[in-house]
Structure formats: structure tokens, C-alpha cells
Simulated assay, not measured.
Amino acid sequence: MTFLWPWMLLGLGVVPLLAGLYAVMQRRRPRYAARFTNLDLLANVVEGSPGWRRHIPPVLYLLAIAAVVVALARPQLVTKTPRQEGTVVLVTDVSGSMNATDVNPTRMAAAQEAAHTLVDRLPKGFRVSLIAFSSGVSVLVPPTTEKESVHAAIDRLSPLGGTAMGDALATAVDVVKAALAPTDGGSGGPAPTPEAPIRAEGEAAPAVIVLLSDGANTVGTYQPLDAARLAAEAGIPVYAVALGTPDGVAVVIDPQGRQRTVRVPPDFATLQAIAETTGGRAFQAPGADQLASIYRDLGDRIGYYEEQTDVSWAGAALAGVLVLAGGTLGLLWFNRFP
């Protein structure tokens, strides 16, 4: 919670002052009682001491003053509001290095589980696409709101081959452009893709790319940074995730069909450069827990926006309730208000 006028909270200092004044007045009560010289008559007039009950209405009034001060400071509550629509393209590495077990149980299994989490956290109106890449690139699911088909495709991912990261990113840009291109009312087909960026300056992106890779680019037509510039020109931010540890190893098949054990460290430097070029963000996920946390956060970051709501009314309402409660108890117990 934040405050629009936080300096008003200085007014809370009056509450302990009033509490101290009340305590002083209570300590002086025995002196007033001593002035009544006929103690036998006093015992007949006063039925009994109210005890602790006499302190409750003043405490309620002090709390009401504190609530009013907080209301005057204009408290702002930050809430997450789901976006109405958007497109998320999951670009997932399925190269042979995803068999590495430095991420429990394997990099591939951890990536699949995290992808399921991300898809589930996106708002219902979002379209999701799944692209898998190894030596080649496959658009497994075009942008759709049917999350079941995306989940099914994620479960079918299987690691094999090289790493065509640049080609996968370029394909994802084409998928986003096709999904967001206006339709031609005459023919019903997509109109030519506009040259202008998909989003204006300072405007929330209607589409993002989530790129997960566990190694360096090894094959393909596009270099990763060339594809990143295509995304930047289209106004599409890329959130890049480097999966695995520097010491990760995997058993791969070489061009001669022989099995070899090779080191497969993630290329975080390239992924970070891609994110910076496109206005996105790069993450390192050395383990399954970190990857799951990153994908959960990405789901919130992409699918929701933070909105500040003025809740001053709550402080004012609470103050009113406290004053009413204090007055009611005073009338019931002592026949006076306040």
C-alpha cells in the first residue's frame, strides 16, 4: 500500500498525545472523589464502578482519529487487473542438450512443467502459440485461446538435434505479425503486414515472445541478434530464459550417428542481448524451481497490469463505525455521549 499524501501521516502523532492526556485525567480521578466528604452518601449514590468499560469508548475515539488521519493521507491499494487480450508465443528449445540432467529430472521435463504453469496463469482471453526448435523450427500451435491444445503440444515435446535459435525467433516474429495483422474485409484474408511497430511508444504490448534456450545457436539462417532486431522493429518484447548450469552435460548424436557426451552450458550472454535489443528481460534458471518461479512471474507480468485504487473511503468508513460504536457503548453503559 502507498499513500498519495504521505506527509498527512504526521497527524498520527496527535493520537499518543491525546492518549497521554486521557491517562493524566484518569490519574486525577481519585482527587475529585476525595473532595466528596460524605463517603457513606457517596456509596449509596454510586451503584458500582464501571471498571475497564469506561476506557473502551475513549479508545474507540482515538482509533477513529487515527483512521481519519490515514484516510486524509489518501491510501492507494495496488491491485492486479487481468488484461483483456494479448498474444504470447512460447519459443522452446528442444535440441539434444535438453536431455541434460543438471536440471532435475531433465531440462526438457522442467521446461515442460514450467510452460504448463505459464499457460495456466495467463488470462482466459489471451492467445497462446507454441514454437519448438532444434535443427529446424516447427509451429506446433498457432495463436489460440484453446489452452488444452497448447498443453497437449507441450507434453509431446521431445529433445533431438541442434539449436536454430535465430530461425526460431524470426519465425515467432512472423507468427505474431500474422496474428495481429488486420483482416481485409473484401477477401477475408489477412491484409499486408504494416511496417509500423505493433505497439506505440509507452503502450502495453499486445504480444510478447517467451524464448527458452539451454545452449548457443549452432545452425540456421538467422543469427539470434539479427532476429532480435526484427522483433524490436515490430515492437515485440522478448523475455529470454537461459536454462541449465555451466557444468551441464548431455549425450548427443553426432552427424555420423555416434553418441557423444558434451558440455552444454546455456548462452546467457546472447539471450540477454536479445532481451535488451527488444525491450524485454533476460532470466537465468539453473534449476527447475527457479524456472517455475520465472514462468509464474512472467504469467503475472504479461497477463496482468498493476492498477492503483484510492481506498480513502475505507478509512473514513472505519472512523465512522468506531465513533458510532463508542457513542453507542457510552449511552448504554453511562447514559452519555461521548
Rank of each mutant, 00 (worst) to 15 (best):
H116C: 05
A114I: 01
P123D: 06
G96W: 02
S95H: 03
H116M: 07
A73Q: 13
V70Q: 11
V69W: 05
P82V: 13
A111H: 09
P105K: 03
P142D: 06
H55L: 13
E113S: 10
R83A: 11
L42V: 15
N44P: 12
I65C: 00
G51A: 06
S134H: 11
G48V: 04
H116P: 07
A73G: 13
A71M: 12
Q76K: 13
H116R: 10
A71P: 07
L72Q: 01
L118Q: 10
V91R: 08
A111V: 02
R127E: 02
F126V: 00
P75Q: 03
P123R: 01
T101K: 13
S97T: 01
V46T: 00
D102A: 14
A66Y: 07
V78A: 10
L62S: 10
P50H: 04
L62T: 05
M108P: 15
T81Q: 15
S95I: 00
G96A: 09
S129F: 11
R74H: 15
E47W: 05
T92G: 12
V89D: 14
W52M: 08
G125P: 02
V141K: 02
L63P: 07
N104Y: 08
V59T: 15
S97G: 04
A71L: 07
T144L: 03
P57T: 02
I65G: 04
A109Y: 13
L62F: 02
E85L: 08
